[in-house]
Design a protein around this nucleic acid. Sequence first.
DNA 1: AATTAGATCTCGACT
DNA 2: AGTCGAGGTCTAATT
Lengths: 229, 229
Amino acid sequence: MRIVIARCQVDYAGRLSAHLAEAVRLIMVKADGSVLVHSDGGSYKPLNWMSPPCSLTVSEPDDDSDRAVAVWTVRSTKTDDQLVIRIYEVHHDTEHDLGVDPGLVKDGVEAHLQELLAANVETFGAGWRLIRREYPTPIGPVDLLCRDDGGSAVAVEIKRRGEIDGVEQLTRYLELLNRDPHLSPVRGVFAAQEIKPQARTLATDRGITCVTVDYDALRGIDDPTTRLF
Amino acid sequence: MRIVIARCQVDYAGRLSAHLAEAVRLIMVKADGSVLVHSDGGSYKPLNWMSPPCSLTVSEPDDDSDRAVAVWTVRSTKTDDQLVIRIYEVHHDTEHDLGVDPGLVKDGVEAHLQELLAANVETFGAGWRLIRREYPTPIGPVDLLCRDDGGSAVAVEIKRRGEIDGVEQLTRYLELLNRDPHLSPVRGVFAAQEIKPQARTLATDRGITCVTVDYDALRGIDDPTTRLF
DNA sequence: AATTAGATCTCGACT
DNA sequence: AGTCGAGGTCTAATT
């Protein structure tokens, strides 16, 4: 990885055109040839960048009036996207061998939440039983199909964050499931770590029960010895 | 901006939990306190990060058996998100004053395309007139509502890249607009710089006309003196 | 503050 | 290879 701190001007042309006026920025050139231009603030997103696969060519300015000490042109190999970096003053330029990264390990995503809830359907109520996970319907699988203590079918939609589109999705599933005489009547449960007020209102209005799930507590129930990493 | 190249191990706990095993990585600390951890590949997205506002505290490892030379804890000020970076070996550590960035200037976005097409509806055909931009419907505004040379109403949906969901959106608008006896029959035009084959097929199947727009040419028509930056 | 829609979205899974 | 959905989405405009 090459790290350059330089006064530069950047132009991107591709899916859109974007321009960065002359200023001091960090230019990161990764081992795969990708280039990132960062300012000293903002978000984790670079101001400008080129994704791999791409190639970097260094040249001198065409125009003698151009004060640039170097012009970097980064071209995408797949598309005709192009990033032109005019470098006016180099403050820092180092190269580092980072080696291969073992990569990120994630925990806590929706799939794991579904897994935990499937193994602990009594979270929704005593006497609940799981019919199956990913119960198929013509428009896609329902996260969980259960029977409550009274033997009634319940479709459960699980989200990390419960928003309005999740309620819409569950509503569509319920409409289809209720056409099946073996299941009908099927009611709905909307389960999420956090449910937005608007989503809760819509769900309640449609007779859907909202359940906020404590992920850590649930993981504790599932296996009290489980600890992070 | 502080640039550190170090052998490190990273743990994030917040909306999810994520872990990075020990390896050499770039750690970027921006002026606003935000922290980015990059590997020598992948995309512009860091492996792990903390968005501002947040604070960084440096400590020594609690456990004597921990070989770490330093432990950085980055805490979000707003949420209880936390990033813990255990540093085992520092390869590089420099600080740079970048100053304030003038910021990115974009050109070529959908809004500008809509503006240009509104001013040049004859792009779609001779004799076309604009009824109005952002013509309201109960499910949101249609980009352009026009009348063609024969006086028939035409709804125009504009996208930078025409994909299938854009055709679906236009279809919903057309269904609503055609309920209005003052407008009906209303036909549709799907305009984009680039239209995906699947979107084109669906549009054609529904009697929607596809128009690919040359943004640069259109800008030239609108004002021949206009040049980028 | 909350909501909506776009993003050079990115990223992964699945077909 | 294309399509679909989720994201620690982020971001900005709008209500």
